[in-house]
């Protein structure tokens, strides 16, 4: 009997990659919307952040699911890259990939690796201190600390620059990944697929650009 849709089949791996990617896209959107409130109103941002940071369902169900989603996406990405490299053991002396495919589609592993590195920094900046405060030291923390922590992190121009460059690479990653995910999960309706791919391109520009705006806004409004 042939393998069915598990992670041991090529299509199974594609589906896992696409599903985890789309899940992360949804997370990214909610993260962006919450962060964006920080440029509109400090109080609203603090309230939402406090809710997110203290709600049991978000902390102990959604957060582990999110972390699992991130791990599955990048581990599967590296597994796919290794298998794909093995599938062409001798390289061409002369190759012209730009004639038939986009730079974004060919370099997902590199844009993804940069995003992964950025996630490490991002976790170090925001997530680790929060976990340390709440679950290691066992302190409650001020419910209005979030906004000031955010502003404090964006004081350093080097850090702001790293964030901005990472968001550009996130945009490039999404530019291909968003539409490709729908192709992978089997959308054959050309009208829907074209619409989703166009929406994906807009999403890939607007959301990272929004994150860049938020970082610059707080850097310039210290």
């Amino acid at each position: 009997m042939a393998n069915t849709g598990s992670s041991s089949t090529s299509i199974g791996r594609k589906l896992i990659m696409a599903a985890s990617g789309l899940f992360l896209v949804i997370f990214l959107l909610q993260h962006f919307l919450i962060n964006f409130t920080s440029v509109i109103d400090e109080k609203t941002f603090n309230e939402i952040s406090h809710f997110m940071g203290t709600n049991v369902l978000i902390q102990f169900v959604m957060q582990p699911i999110l972390i699992a989603g991130v791990i599955i996406h990048f581990v599967m990405g590296f597994i796919l890259e290794m298998k794909n490299t093995k599938a062409r053991n001798v390289k061409y002396a002369m190759n012209k990939p730009s004639a038939n495919s986009s730079w974004m589609s060919r370099n997902m592993i590199y844009t993804g690796a940069v995003i992964l590195g950025f996630l490490g920094l991002h976790f170090y900046d925001f997530w680790v201190p929060e976990i340390d405060l709440k679950y290691v030291q066992g302190l409650e923390g001020s419910p209005t600390r979030y906004f000031h922590e955010l502003q404090h992190r964006f004081e350093d121009p080097v850090r702001v620059a790293i964030y901005c460059v990472s968001f550009v690479l996130l945009a490039l990653h999404l530019m291909h990944g968003f539409g490709a995910a729908f192709q992978s999960v089997g959308v054959t309706n050309k009208r829907y697929l074209t619409g989703l791919q166009k929406f994906g391109k807009i999403f890939a520009i607007v959301v990272p650009l929004g994150f860049i705006f938020i970082a610059l806004f707080h850097h310039l409004n210290q």
């Binding site: 090529s10 594609k14 298998k83 589609s105 539409g179």
Partner: peptide, 10 residues
């Protein structure tokens, strides 16, 4: 031993 599709469209 073929590779996996990454939808480059090439």
């Amino acid at each position: 031993g073929f590779g996996n599709c990454t939808v480059t469209g090439a």
